[in-house]
Design a protein around this nucleic acid. Sequence first.
DNA 1: GAGGAGATCGTCT
DNA 2: GACGATCTCCTCT
Length: 211
Amino acid sequence: MARTQADPFRTPLRRGFYDRDPRKVSRELLGKVLVRREGRRLLAARVVEVEAYLGEDDPAAHSAAGRTTRNAVLFGPPGYAYVYFIYGNHYCLNVSCLPDGVAGGILFRAAEPMLGIDEMARARNLPVDGTRDLRKLTSGPGRLAEAFGITRNRDNGKDLASSRSDLFLADDGYRASRILVTPRIGITKAADRPLRYVIAGNAFVSGKKPA
DNA sequence: GAGGAGATCGTCT
DNA sequence: GACGATCTCCTCT
């Protein structure tokens, strides 16, 4: 069936998309578009790197020690934003997965800027001109959150599956050609589990560029 | 270009 | 009171 893509940045992925195992959702999130829409302003970036966090049996997950006020969103219904503050400096964006009562989520680690690049640069306190390195905008979870103006106060608990939300994921028809699965980054517990998903060869994946 | 350490604060023990 | 799902800057090569 032919579907019009007149405004692919307007329709959020539905809640059922997130109501599955985070490993499966992670694979399918690659290539989707993270959208921030506030009035006439539009920010959009293609997701190129995520990590799955499984729940109470995943020692690296915030939900490992059980439900607290901080991580409550991870235990709630699927499709909600879990934003946490880390290292005294940075926010990180996650989306909850699995049904209400079951913990699980996905960390957004990197994206490829598409729309609103000047605004992202301003949010990151980087120079707004033609010579900047776009990788510095959104390659890394802290950078991505800053570029999109994501904070705990503003976005934690936000419904990413609502058409009234100013923050959501959208599908513009893009499909990742090849997906790479690697161990997660920056953790010490369960550091060997292959739960990091990246679009192979994409320049905006965080960390060092592969040879 | 690579490697190391500091910044900085909310959350949990 | 310790630590963390990070980033940036500084030093050394």
